[in-house]
């Protein structure tokens, strides 16, 4: 990930979150151009989970994700230009135009794949952790999924196997309380999600997913335990998606989430909180923040220009990659 010299390490978490926020805002703004013709699930408001967890990982550790994956891909170091090109259906996209927003991959960065069937990558990530163990790779796998995934049987099958074989995997549940328009309370009985993971034999933590430093600390501890052979770990990170489930807009007018809850969560913006933390420690000046914003914007502008100017995939490429050559 490009780090500019004007930012110190103390700024890294802020910068990574701000970068994801500004990238997604740019995507949202340009979505109306009708050139990014694929479903897109923005993580605006949830940046701390992606940044906090990946900050605790090594470069060689692997990450898997689901449909709302931009933040996870970018936080792990996935190539920005290739992601934007993928959304624009370009041949230079990270899947050469076969995936779009819901299928991202950058294996060089350790982002091993995201797919949009809820629970779809859960067992795949467990299998990658199994391979890490069998091949003595010392690699930890981090896996992002949502609260809705707890309603999928495959999650429980996967946790069972991960615990049985004490695999080095970090299950990260981003609990944003909603599956599309349906509240958690309408889908699951009153009991803590992390309690189910504990019942499967996982070591669990339950915390505010909008506190990037708390997330990083919890993830670092969990990753350390996983790496030292203590078996699968689980983080329940409470957070909130600011925009609609799928698409670029804010959909508060639909009324499926209470205005009070929405306002309370907006006040818990992970980026604002980190800025306040840094200012309180006298580690961030307005000039530094201004420069950070400017550098990020420059990177985004260049990435969009590069991505959009790339060619569309040649029609004859459609049949490629079905089987090994």
């Amino acid at each position: 990930m490009p780090e500019t010299t004007s930012n110190t390490n103390e700024h890294a978490l802020l910068r990574r979150m701000l970068r994801i926020r500004r990238i997604e805002e740019a995507l949202a703004k340009r979505y109306a151009e009708q050139e990014m013709r694929c479903p897109m699930h923005l993580c605006i408001g949830q940046e701390a989970t992606a940044v906090g967890v990946t900050a605790a990982l090594k470069k060689d550790d692997h990450v898997f994700s689901g449909h709302r994956a931009h933040g996870h891909y970018l936080a792990k170091g996935g190539d920005l230009t290739r992601m934007i090109a993928e959304l624009y259906g370009r041949v230079t996209g990270c899947c050469e135009g076969r995936g779009g927003s819901m299928h991202l991959i950058d294996q060089a960065a350790g982002f091993m794949g995201s797919t949009p069937i809820v629970g779809g990558t859960v067992p795949v990530a467990v299998g990658a952790a199994w391979a890490s163990t069998l091949r003595n790779e010392g690699r930890v796998i981090a896996l992002f999924f949502g609260d809705g995934c707890f309603e999928e049987g495959v999650l429980h099958e996967s946790m069972n196997f991960a615990a049985l074989h004490q695999l080095p995997i970090l299950f990260v549940c981003e609990n944003n309380d909603y599956a599309v328009y349906t509240a958690l309370g309408d889908r699951q009985p009153q009991r803590p999600i992390h309690g189910i993971a504990a019942a499967h034999g996982l070591q669990t933590s339950n915390l505010d997913g909008n506190d990037v430093r708390a997330v990083q600390t919890a993830a670092a501890e969990a990753t350390q335990r996983a790496r030292s052979g203590e078996g699968p770990q689980f983080l329940e990170l409470h957070t909130w998606r600011w925009r609609e489930h799928c698409g670029p807009d804010i959909d508060d007018q639909l009324g499926y989430r209470s205005p009070e809850a929405q306002a309370a969560w907006l006040a818990r913006c992970p980026i604002q909180r980190e800025q306040e933390h840094l200012r309180g420690q006298k580690l961030l000046t307005e000039t530094e923040l201004h420069n950070m914003e400017r550098n990020i914007q420059q990177e985004i502008d260049i990435a969009f220009d590069t991505a959009i100017s790339a060619p569309l995939p040649p029609v004859e490429n459609m049949h490629r990659h079905l089987h090994a050559q």
Partner: peptide
């Protein structure tokens, strides 16, 4: 042997397969 988890274990084997096994 495997747990009685056909879908989960298939996904786990896919994950192992993309990881070199």
């Amino acid at each position: 042997d495997m747990p009685l988890s056909e879908n989960g274990l298939t996904g786990i084997c896919i994950g192992a397969a993309i990881s070199g096994l």
